[in-house]
């Protein structure tokens, strides 16, 4: 099923896209002994009365879907590593999903192939502005697709040279902020 944290992130991003988001913020931080991940969007948001149910594995807002396993699995994963996961409505619309996991906990899934997961998603949604922020206690690395597009003009992010550059940059970003795993 969802084997690594980059898959969890991809799943959260899909939820944001499905909610019609035009701006999606993705952040991953290694703070002290914790790994904190967050995806926030300006999409349709979750109605107040449904909020307590979104982490129920037998609940889904998707038409035809019987179960929505993404969020419940993230909650379970976070709690198994001594952390927690919260799903909140954002003021002014949209949703914020925040999870804290124990970095050194043996049950923490690996980060997985973050560049290989995020870059194709970022590149195939020209209508959405993505911001990616990677950080630790000392440093911060950011990427904004809006800024990239300003520099690239008519050239799409899905252009092969851009894809390669983005994957390389993201991998370097992960290494800069201590998010590179030796597993």
């Amino acid at each position: 099923m969802i084997e690594d944290l980059s898959m969890h992130l991809a799943d959260l991003i899909q939820n944001s896209l499905r909610a019609g988001a035009r701006s999606i913020g993705i952040s991953l931080a290694r703070l002290g002994g914790s790994l904190v991940l967050e995806v926030s969007d300006d999409g349709a948001g979750i109605p107040e009365d449904l909020l307590p149910r979104v982490t129920d594995p037998f609940f889904s807002t998707k038409p035809g879907a019987r179960v929505g396993l993404g969020l419940p699995l993230l909650v379970q994963t976070a709690e198994e590593t001594g952390g927690e996961c919260r799903v909140e409505r954002r003021e002014g619309g949209g949703t914020r999903v925040w999870a804290r996991l124990g970095w050194d906990h043996p049950d923490r899934p690996p980060l997985g192939d973050l560049p290989g997961t995020l870059v194709p998603l970022l590149a195939t949604h020209p209508e959405v502005e993505f911001t990616v922020e990677l950080s630790d206690d000392r440093a911060k690395w950011t990427l904004s697709t809006r800024e990239l597009r300003e520099h690239l003009g008519e050239v799409p992010l899905a252009h092969p040279d851009v894809l390669r550059l983005l994957e390389r940059e993201l991998a370097e970003g992960l290494a800069q902020v201590g998010l590179k795993e030796e597993r």
Binding site: H151, L152, L165
Partner: peptide, 13 residues
């Protein structure tokens, strides 16, 4: 982000 590299990609593309 390496702006010089982005500029070159843009010119080529």
């Amino acid at each position: 982000m390496k702006l010089e590299e982005l500029r070159k990609i843009r010119e080529r593309a």
